[in-house]
Design a protein around this nucleic acid. Structure first.
Length: 849
RNA sequence: GCGGACGUGGCGAAAUCGGUAGACGCAGCAGACUUAAAAUCUGCUUUCCUUCGGGGAGUGUGGGUUCAAGUCCCGCCGUCCGCACCA
């Protein structure tokens, strides 16, 4: 035991103690209430970065807080260990991806342990190990059985640099999410998961979690699914059997339609007379549009609208009007019906298109003018038909020039016109979604093989469950051709058909790593189960996760997939709930200044502004690094790294250390008996007040995860205790009040600086560690209450004086005291006092004229 | 372009309900200790004026509501994020 603070010694000591006593291993049957604290599992790149440290520091603080409060806390960690970098390393440096991955895991596990994060290491899992990915394959088979996993030819996003298929999400913005290379399109047969079947639930169930999730994540998820209510309308085509179906959210504007516009891939285009000049033009045009789309690099600029009149004529079923059918680049085949009615007067895109090609623009919605009736009782909608048609008018309004529908409000017309279409058999109300099915095929080696066998006779045959896992071979040739490396491993590919016993080939695709991360936190609850992904009984108790913490970069991909997966598992009968995560916290980025500039960017190797966690631990200790991270900014904010900030954290820990050692001998000598004297003096009362105020504040702030203010509260308490000796009031304060303050200080320090707290707790005479001997303190409201109040007094809303009061002072007394106050009187003198506002125990405002 | 969030000292920030703006920390300044420095401790630290009692201004900006606005409402400016022709 040393009176000087040596973090490296005590951190080693307690990390070893925790390991030896298996302090953080969870008994799932423990009768205490459970708390599942989860951080997003990392990809084992080889090294922790500060973003990881922040994530784990926050999670660990909450885990400790809940443990000290008496919860049975599950706090696990694992590895998202399939994926590109391992394969890249194999290609570039010829290393074995498995060895590379395992070495990285070993190193990063060491880093986590040096940080002293309180994980239950007995539950560690890794996606690349067969005992995990066999269950990915098992789930795939279940989805395949139910038609939720299916194969189809499909244009996919293709990264020409990494030569791999990317999901829509991964090529969001038209660039590869990993390397930033602009993506292109490629036709290829792919496995898809029918997430669109759950589109409605993915939106509707947001209501269930909204309260516990950040607003912006909920919003992004809602936008991602893109639910949109509208109507289908079928337009007959003149001299044609086919009809063109359009989707619109503004069927109320249908009398303003002056054209029908279809996508370049629309099947109606194939019905144009073979060999006609027009057909050739349209074909050429469609090919050009497709080519442009595939090669687009700058998606920040909207492409200019181009189109071509197909010569076809469509008939508006509402008024019998004949409309030209155009094909244009701004209509997308894979949304809605692949065709739209063009209403230039009331849609910006149609307006732009019509202006360019001089199509008629016809106003059919008028702005409502609210005219106050003379009695003032009713608001009468009038019409303003003088809308300036230099731009589209897209608001709701009153229908005009719309036959029998004129005079109706948009809101009513939307509903009634959809009903009318349905009744007359040419359409009806409909809901569409932007969400697309999830392409999970990857032409990669380092992933879970798709458990399907292709048989010449039987077709696609699922691997029987008893044959799982389909083992990934040890090694493969990385040709970089874009074809899965598994195709070049004959021992893997060649097999027999489980159905007919004949020669057959295995599917050589592997699964998207987002499959692995969609259900990993279920596996933590039952990590060694060999007969099922998990025991449903265990899951029923432990999931939903109480608090999930991670970066908001996963706001749509991972967090949509895991919500989908949960609903899918529910429909398999494995679980009985629909949402996996009760509360979500998205942490901000950790940034650092780029040398020689004033720019703050996320830490990264390539920018040279990274900070190595190991160096921080060596220089300042894990506790100081963690404390600084929690204190420096609110968890959701960007955190700007600061070397002097971390020094401040060390100073604080040293001060707490000094305080404990200053009082230790006296406290130990006094023993455990209470020595509160009856006539508690004011110093004692003040100290106890501060102690209990701090307890109340910190307990509340922890629930909100306001960790920065929490550290501030702790600093205030430590300053208050420090002042006892510094200001010579030590003798005045009762020893048991000091004990109370110091013990609260040490216990409440634990979530942010656990090693230091353990050491100090032991120094205070508690053997056996915090978990055995400490409880999160409870605030006593009476003790926390102030017995003297300083009441600000305002005159006309300006602070002029302060008067002293007690909680018992009545409003009338406050009022009298305020008016009698000398300073106040100097401002009220010669003025008429209009009124006096008294906010009980808070403030007095004298209003004068 | 559309949608959303935000705007508080030199810096990170705090401010349950509309009720003392700037807690806590960083940086800075002054002092104590020291041969000296570091470390540590103490004090100061929004800004302007001051006869040193105080007084004025102040939460991007202009209005409004209110006894009272960082907080609520409207306009503008700025920053950041999301989306990328989704009909």
């Amino acid at each position: 035991m040393n009176e000087k603070y040596f973090p490296e010694e005590i951190e080693k000591k307690w990390q070893q103690a925790w390991r030896e006593t298996r302090a953080f291993e969870v008994d799932m049957d423990d009768p205490r209430p459970k708390f599942y604290c989860l951080e997003m599992l990392p990809y084992p790149s080889g090294f922790l970065h500060m973003g990881h440290v922040r994530n784990y520091a926050v999670g660990d603080a909450l885990a400790w807080f809940k443990r000290l409060q008496g919860f049975n806390v599950l706090h696990p960690i694992g590895w998202d260990s399939f994926g590109q970098p391992a394969e890249q390393a194999a290609i570039k440096r010829g290393v074995n991806p498995r060895d590379w991955t395992e070495q990285n895991i070993a190193h990063m596990r060491g880093q986590m342990q040096r940080l002293g994060i309180s994980y239950d290491w007995s539950r560690e899992i890794a996606a690349h190990r067969p005992d995990y990915y066999r269950w990915d394959q098992w789930f795939f088979l279940k989805m395949f059985e139910r038609g939720l996993a299916y194969k189809r030819q499909s244009p996919v996003n293709w990264c020409p640099r990494e030569e791999t298929v990317l999901s829509n999400e991964q090529s969001s913005g038209g660039v590869c999410w990993r390397c930033g290379t602009p993506t292109t399109k490629k036709e290829i047969t792919q496995w898809f998961v029918r997430i669109t079947k759950y589109a409605e639930q993915l939106v509707a169930d947001l209501a269930e979690i909204e309260a516990g999730w950040p607003e912006k994540v909920v919003k992004r998820q809602r936008d991602w699914v893109g639910r949109s209510e509208g109507a289908y309308v079928d337009f007959a085509v003149q001299d044609h059997d086919e009809k063109i179906r359009i989707f619109t959210t503004r069927v109320d504007t249908i009398f303003g339609a002056t054209a029908i516009v279809v996508a370049a891939e629309h099947p109606i285009l194939d019905t144009l007379p073979e060999g006609s000049a027009l057909r050739d033009d349209v074909k050429q045009f469609a090919a050009k549009v497709k080519a442009e789309r595939a090669s687009r690099s700058d998606l920040t600029v909207e492409e200019e609208k181009t189109g071509l009149n197909t010569g076809l004529l469509a008939i508006n079923p509402f008024n019998g009007e004949t409309l030209p059918v155009w094909v244009a680049n701004y209509v997308l085949m894979d949304y809605g019906a692949g065709a739209v009615m063009s209403v230039p007067a009331h849609d910006e895109r149609d307006f732009e298109f019509a202006t360019k090609y001089t199509l008629p623009i016809r106003q059919v919605i008028a702005r409502i003018t609210h005219e106050q009736a003379p009695t003032g009782a009713d608001v009468v909608p009038g019409q303003d038909q003088s809308i300036d048609m230099r731009e589209a008018f897209t608001d709701y309004g009153v229908l005009v020039n719309s036959g029998g529908w004129s005079g109706k409000l948009s809101q009513d017309a939307l509903r009634e016109m959809a009903e009318y279409a349905e009744k007359n058999g040419f359409g009806g109300g409909a809901v569409t979604y932007r969400l697309r099915d999830w392409g999970i095929s990857r032409q990669r080696f380092w992933g879970a093989p798709v458990p399907i066998i292709h048989c010449g006779k039987c077709g696609e045959v699922p691997v029987p469950e008893k044959d799982l896992p389909v083992m990934l071979p040890d090694q493969a040739q990385f040709t970089g051709t874009g074809e899965s490396p598994l195709a070049g491993v004959p021992e893997f590919v060649n097999t027999t058909c489980p159905k007919c016993g004949g020669e057959a080939r295995r599917d050589t695709d592997t699964m998207d790593t987002f499959v692995d991360s969609s259900w990993y936190f279920f596996r933590y609850c039952d990590p060694r189960n060999e007969s099922a992904p998990f025991d449903p009984k265990v899951i029923a108790k432990w999931i939903p996760v109480d608090q999930y913490i991670g970066g908001d970069s996963h706001a749509v991909m991972h967090l949509i997939y895991t919500r989908f997966w949960t609903k899918m598992m529910r429909d398999l009968g494995l679980i009985s709930f629909s949402e996996p995560v009760k509360k979500l916290l998205t942490q901000g980025m950790v940034t650092n200044r780029i040398e020689g500039t004033d720019e703050w960017k996320a830490m990264s190797k390539s920018l040279g502004n990274g900070v190595d966690p190991d160096e921080m631990i060596a220089a300042y200790g894990a506790d100081a690094a963690r404390l600084f991270i929690l204190f420096a900014a609110p968890v959701e904010n960007e955190l700007r790294w600061s070397e002097s900030g971390i020094e401040g954290a060390v100073r604080f820990l040293r001060r707490v250390w000094t305080i404990v050692w200053q009082w230790r001998d006296r406290l130990l000598a006094a023993g455990n008996e209470a020595v509160v004297s009856d006539a508690a003096d004011s110093a004692t009362r003040a100290l106890r007040r501060k102690t209990h105020q701090t307890i109340a504040r910190m307990t509340a702030d922890f629930e909100k995860l306001d960790l920065n203010t929490n550290v501030a509260a702790l600093m205030e308490l430590s300053n208050a205790v420090g002042d006892l000796t510094a200001k010579g009031t030590a003798a005045a304060a009762d020893l048991s009040a000091v004990r109370e303050a110091i013990e609260a200080l040490v216990i409440m320090l634990t979530p942010m600086a656990p090693h230091t707290a353990e050491e100090l707790w032991e120094a205070l005479g508690h053997d056996g560690g915090l978990l055995q001997t400490a409880k999160w303190p409870t605030a006593d409201a009476d003790l926390a209450r102030k017995d003297e109040l300083e009441i600000p007094v305002q005159v006309n809303g300006k602070l002029r004086s302060k008067i002293m009061a007690t909680p018992e002072t009545t409003d009338e007394e406050l009022r009298a005291a305020a008016l009698a106050d000398e300073k106040v009187r100097s401002f009220t003198e010669g003025h008429e006092i209009v009124k006096v506002i008294v906010i009980p125990q808070r403030l007095v405002n004298v209003v004068v004229r």
